Amino acid sequence: MSILHYDFMVRALIAAVLVGLTAPAVGIYLVQRRMSLVGDGIGHIALTGVALGFLTGQSPVLSAVVVAALGAVAVELIRSRGGASGDVALSLLFYGGIAGGVLLISLAPNGGNNNLLGYLFGSLLTTRPSDLIVMGVLAVAVLLFTVGLRSWLFAICHDEEFARVSGVPVRLLNILLAVSAAVTVTVAMRVVGVLLVSALMVIPVATAQQVARGFAATLAGAMGLSVAVALTGAVGSFYLDVPSGASIVVLAVLVFVVVTAVAAAVHGWQRRAAARPSRPAPEAPAPDPVAAEPTGAGVPGR
């Protein structure tokens, strides 16, 4: 029987596509700014939101959106200050987020390790219709922002000072990008979990950079690869009865290793071919002096 006959698998595949599109759409900007681990830190903060949802009886997804967004804004404000004190503050925020989540989930009346593990490492096959609706709305909002404003976001990622002088609202875009990262973490936590979501935001982008030239090509390649990996990992987890989040991330890592190895081999061959001396052109034969001597008809005095 086809897996599409199961409603939970249809929901799982739709969720995988949504995450496959949104994760690299935000991750490419984080990679460009060398902030690849920010997604992992925001995931720790989102865990507190999940636990808060269980504690208050609200939707864990919605509470995670609010808490992760507030945490992402705090991360951006701390990052903009820079310095060693900023690094310490970020560490306190990240570790405090995961510790707060564990503490709150233990106080929740219906909480427990099973509920928490589903959000920590993903539980794609248990995606509910209500989760899918929330994920769809959030994914559309993230894609509209990251793709629609890609020229401005590209500008602030490469030269923030020049973008500010050019009139680009740098502070607002930085905050919105941080919120988009928080929303992406929330969208992806049902698929790969808050502890693994950063991998899906970074690895497809790093893989696409090995073969793509230009920002638009890298973005398109990363999104296509992410969707393919998410779908393949979801289907594989169904047939192999293994965790979906781990399957997707491991598959993404394997693809990265293979693409990197092939790209390195191709580049090495191109360098050797360019360094190989070209065969010299054959020299023209020397002119025959006898044949070159003019005939008598053209010589005066004959």
Rank of each mutant, 00 (worst) to 15 (best):
N115E: 14
I3Y: 12
E293L: 12
G71C: 05
V259W: 09
G53C: 06
T22I: 01
L47R: 03
V165A: 10
V19R: 05
V191C: 12
M9W: 06
P285T: 06
A199P: 09
G86C: 04
A246V: 10
W269V: 14
L153D: 01
I28Q: 09
V38N: 08
V38C: 07
V299G: 15
I28M: 05
R279G: 15
L254K: 10
S237L: 11
A51Q: 08
V211E: 06
F162D: 13
D241N: 14
I156K: 00
A51V: 12
E283R: 10
A265Y: 07
G245I: 00
M1G: 14
A72N: 00
T218P: 11
A275F: 05
M1W: 15
V61E: 13
D159T: 04
A217E: 08
V211Q: 06
A15L: 07
Q270H: 14
S151F: 15
H5M: 12
Q210G: 06
I98P: 15
V290S: 11
A230K: 03
V191I: 09
T127M: 03
A291R: 11
G83M: 03
G82K: 09
L143V: 00
G298P: 15
H267P: 14
G268A: 10
V253P: 15
V75L: 07
T146Y: 01
